[in-house]
Amino acid sequence: MILKKNPLQLAIGLFILLFILWLLSSGHYTTLIISFGVFSCALVVFLSWKMEIIDSEGVPIHLIGGAIRYVPWLIWQIILANIDVTKRVLQPKMDITPQLIEVETSQKTDLGRVIYANSITLTPGTVSIQVHEDRILVHAIAKEVAEELQKGEMDRRVTRMEGLS
């Protein structure tokens, strides 16, 4: 863990997030219904407190700043990858050379590695099969896609997002 946050702060943050979620999905704003909402959010926070899952991994509010810069880039990459895979699928003779590769990760925390592996999976054309220590086994649909991933641009960006906290 690179940063230790006060668990109480995180619990309050979780409560606020849950309550916003509740307000947005409810649509009824009378005193009775809102008090039900407060009660159920408090119950969830209490249960997670008892389960000891409130830490900077379970409530990653420190990543929000970095995510604002990372997510648009990721979305753009996903769109490009989609167009690429679409071309490969629609060609009469499919231009695919499936292969397994291993990529290095440079993230310091498990959470960072999970974000990296999930970004790899979310991008069409690459699927992460398993994360072992600081290496990720990836199945790529074509040689070009694998080479693109091995350049490590996504890895650098995830590490930077993690470091921004």
Partner: peptide
């Protein structure tokens, strides 16, 4: 629909996952 076509055309399980992820994302 491209995701669906890919799901039918591609040769093995691992490549079909890529096709399914086209549908799931864009």
């Amino acid at each position: 629909i491209v995701g669906g076509i890919g799901l039918l055309r591609l040769p093995d399980f691992y490549t079909r996952v890529h096709a399914a992820s086209i549908t799931d994302t864009v």
